[in-house]
Every structure is written in C-alpha cells, then in structure tokens.
Amino acid sequence: MNPRRKQRLVVVSGIIVLIGAAISLMLYALNDNIDLFYTPSEIIEGKKGQTPQVGQRLRIGGMVVPGTVDRNSQTLQVAFDLVDTGPAVTVLYNGILPDLFREGQGIVATGTLIDPTTIEAHEVLAKHDEEYMPPELAEKMKGIKHVKPDAGDSQ
C-alpha cells in the first residue's frame, strides 16, 4: 500500500471513530431525558411484554375517574385515579393543577413510578378535545349553521 492511500485510510478511520464517539455521547446524554409514554393498562399489564420498573420516569395519559380526586386541604397535594379501557392507576401530584383539569377529562402526567399502580407526578397537563372553541368565537358562531359536505358531492 502506498503512503498516500495509507494516510487516507487513517484519516477516514479517524473520522468514523470520532462520529461514532459523538453519537455514543449524544445517546448517553439523552438517556436521562427519555420519558416513555404509557396508558394505565400498559403500566399494569405491560407494554409489549415489559412492565415499567419502580423508579422509572414515564408519561401516562388517560381519563380522570369521576369521584376519585382527593385534595388535601392543608397542602397542594392531590391524588386521583387515571383509567383508559382497563384498570386504573393512582397519580399523586403536589402543585397547582391546570385550569382545564376536571373529572372525566383527559390528562397527561409526567412522573416516577413509585409502586406498580402509583405514579408520583411532577407535571400534569390537561388535554382539551378538538371541539374546543374560545368563548368569543363560540358566541359569534351561534347563529351560523355548518353542514359537512358529502363525500359523494365532488363530481
């Protein structure tokens, strides 16, 4: 092998090693910020055969079960149950809940699994449905009738 090819091989090999090291470092740094999304059923029954481990950070989404919101009158501690189509999971949260939070409402909570059916949340986000409309716009649209076009009318 001539010296020029050998030099190119060393340079290309060095670049590949540096790129691999950079990707490895990025993945290692991002590993602490990854929150997997689960539903209450997936937490209890498992997701693709794996159940989350106690202490794991995760996101959970579901509906707040009516009648389960328990507020502590002395602190900002709130406990409520979340459900999707299966068993319920208890969420503990210490803080001010979003304005859209209410029983029967869909929410997404980010937190840590403290036992197989309890999550200690550090963030709670209330979801609104796609039918939401600001009150001012709803008032303006009261008199307007909207008819959905038929699929067969496009001739």
Rank of each mutant, 00 (worst) to 15 (best):
M1E: 06
N2D: 13
N2W: 03
P3Y: 03
V10G: 01
V12W: 03
S13W: 03
V17F: 01
V17C: 03
L18G: 03
A21Q: 05
I23S: 01
Y28E: 01
A29D: 00
L30Y: 10
D32C: 01
I44C: 12
E45W: 13
T51K: 15
Q53C: 04
V54F: 03
Q56S: 08
R57F: 12
R57E: 07
R59K: 14
M63S: 12
V64C: 13
G67L: 08
S73Q: 10
Q77H: 15
V78H: 14
A79M: 11
D84C: 05
T85G: 12
A88I: 06
V91R: 04
V91M: 01
L92N: 12
P98D: 02
A109R: 07
T110S: 09
G111D: 06
T112K: 14
P116T: 07
T117M: 11
T117L: 13
I119R: 09
A121L: 11
H122K: 13
L125Y: 08
A126Q: 09
K127N: 07
H128I: 11
E131G: 01
E131L: 11
M133E: 06
M133Q: 07
P134A: 09
P134C: 02
P134F: 05
A138W: 02
K145G: 03
K148R: 02
D150E: 04
D150L: 10
G152L: 09
S154N: 12
S154C: 06
